[in-house]
Design a protein around this nucleic acid. Structure first.
Length: 426
RNA sequence: GGAGAAAUACUCAAGAGGCUGAAGAGGUGCCCCUGCUAAGGGUAUAGGUCGUUUACGCGGCGCGAGGGUUCAAAUCCCUCUUUCUCCGCCA
């Protein structure tokens, strides 16, 4: 959510800042709604003030034995008018709130121009694209030949884009998860293990709703409505919804594993093979709450923290800065980490690290202050994948495959797999 | 699943339909006293949000949430949420 005061004071500036975004939204309603609301508010509040003054007179009059009938008649009319205006205010408020939720975040000035992901800017690379002296296989073929990944079985029990991991494949996935969490804990992120389902309110707080409802899985039961988490960002950020945090204890940093569930309504036909685009996948997420003045430095650090797990594993990757046209609805600035995927012959996104500034904090009402005297102000939220586990599994299979179709397990993961060094089958 | 109880400011807590934005206590700030500490005395302060004003300020809303009754609601009514206790059921 944008700052309504900024919309009022510099509407043209906001309009300009949002103009390069590749999103659909309509700014034209704002001035009308806002002016209408303020006019109504002024009117009804003046009446309420009158009503309050009169109410204070009543006990005094009664004490003096005066007749209050005339006053009550008068007040009844006032009261009816107030109710009528209150209803109008509520209507305008709801319309304005609903509208505010449809407007994307203002990009940071340093975000590069560009219309699509093709214009994202490469910032740095780690390692070199893996070279093979044999014909490398794609991870879905490796997984099938080793009998450790089984999409057919997933399709049988559930449907398309669900995969069974079997034997060493399941162990590898679990090892990666534990390894990531352990590294991030050492980096200073406190681990939490959140619910995999969240309320509509939480989805709205982090910005998945109302715009992207079609991408989320909805679950009903016990007469309630829940959403399967598309990312741990949602429950973890909403941990602090409607709270004022102690500014002296910032930043707050959490890491969390969850399964993630995405309907990905707009991506039918893309990445249909392998682990790249599943409806359910595992991810370790980093979530941070920062002082506004520190948030961009923290974004760099958080991105580095995510990169570190790939460095330890020895997976080649690059970091790109996301351009205007590819920047999500909620982010002010975003880096993607892309891992080298031999089967694609290119780098593939494995992590997104974003600074949302106060955009989510305003929606979710998360503030901080340093002492009782200070005025509470909105916090900045950041998060990043640290990193996607399924895609890491895919990257490990592909980058560390050998000519005989076996996989060399990265050193750092072996202790999580009973010392196993090679995957040569289930 | 059944039956009860509760929700008030940073914390605990009082609260009659009207003079309560909220007694009291703790906490916190400042001052005094005791050589230091422990303890004591005095005094101040009360969160958030919206509107308005160049500003000091003024006004509205806020007693778990949302509705309602009333001239007037922390107080009465309805719905919901959460927490606690008891019973049942069970990994």
């Amino acid at each position: 959510m944008l700052d309504i005061k900024l919309l009022r004071s510099d509407f043209e500036g906001v309009e300009k800042a949002l103009s390069t975004r590749n999103e659909e939204f309509d700014l034209s309603k704002f001035k009308d709604l806002d002016e209408k609301r303020r006019a109504l508010l002024g009117e009804v509040e003046a009446l309420k003030s009158e009503q309050n003054k009169a109410s204070k007179q009543v006990p005094i009059m009664k004490k003096e034995g005066k007749d209050t009938t005339a006053l009550f008649d008068e007040m009844k009319k006032l009261s009816d008018k107030i109710k009528e205006l209150d209803a109008q205010v509520r209507e305008v408020d709801e319309e304005l709130d609903a509208w505010m939720l449809t407007i994307p975040n203002i990009p940071h000035p340093s975000v590069p121009e560009g219309k699509s992901d093709e214009e994202n800017v490469q910032i740095r690379t780690f390692g070199e694209p893996t070279k093979f002296d044999f014909e490398p296989k794609a991870h879905w073929d490796l997984g099938k030949d080793l009998d450790i990944l089984d999409p057919e079985m997933g399709a049988k029990t559930t449907g398309a884009r669900f995969t069974f991991y079997k034997g060493a494949g399941a162990k590898l996935e679990r090892a990666i998860m534990n390894f990531f969490l352990d590294v991030h804990e050492k980096q200073g992120y406190e681990e939490v293990f959140p619910p995999f389902m969240v309320s509509r309110e939480s989805m709205t707080g982090t910005g998945q709703l109302p715009k992207f409802e079609e991408d989320a899985y909805k679950v009903t039961g016990d007469g309630k409505e829940y959403f399967l988490v598309p990312t741990a960002e949602v429950p973890v950020t909403n941990m602090y919804r409607d709270t004022i945090l102690d500014g002296t204890k910032l930043p707050i940093k959490h890491c969390a594993y969850t399964a993630c569930f995405r309907a990905e309504a707009g991506s039918a036909g893309r990445d249909t093979r392998g682990l790249i685009r599943q409806h359910q996948f595992n991810k370790v997420e980093l979530v941070e709450f920062s002082r506004p003045e520190d948030s961009y430095a923290e974004l760099e650090r958080l991105t580095n923290d995510a990169e570190e797990v790939l460095q330890i594993l020895g997976l080649p990757y690059r970091v790109v800065k996301i351009c205007m046209g590819d920047l999500g609805f909620t982010a002010a600035m975003k880096y993607d980490i892309e891992v080298w995927m031999p089967s694609y012959g290119r780098y593939v996104e494995i992590s997104s690290c974003s600074n949302f500034e106060a955009f989510q904090a305003r929606r979710a009402n998360i503030k901080f202050k340093d002492s009782a005297k200070d005025k509470a102000q909105f916090i900045h939220t950041l998060n990043g994948s640290g990193v996607a586990i399924g895609r890491t599994t895919a990257a490990i299979l592909e980058n560390f495959q050998q000519a005989d179709g076996t996989i060399v397990i990265p050193e750092a993961l072996r202790k999580y797999m009973n010392g196993k060094e090679i995957i040569n089958g289930r």
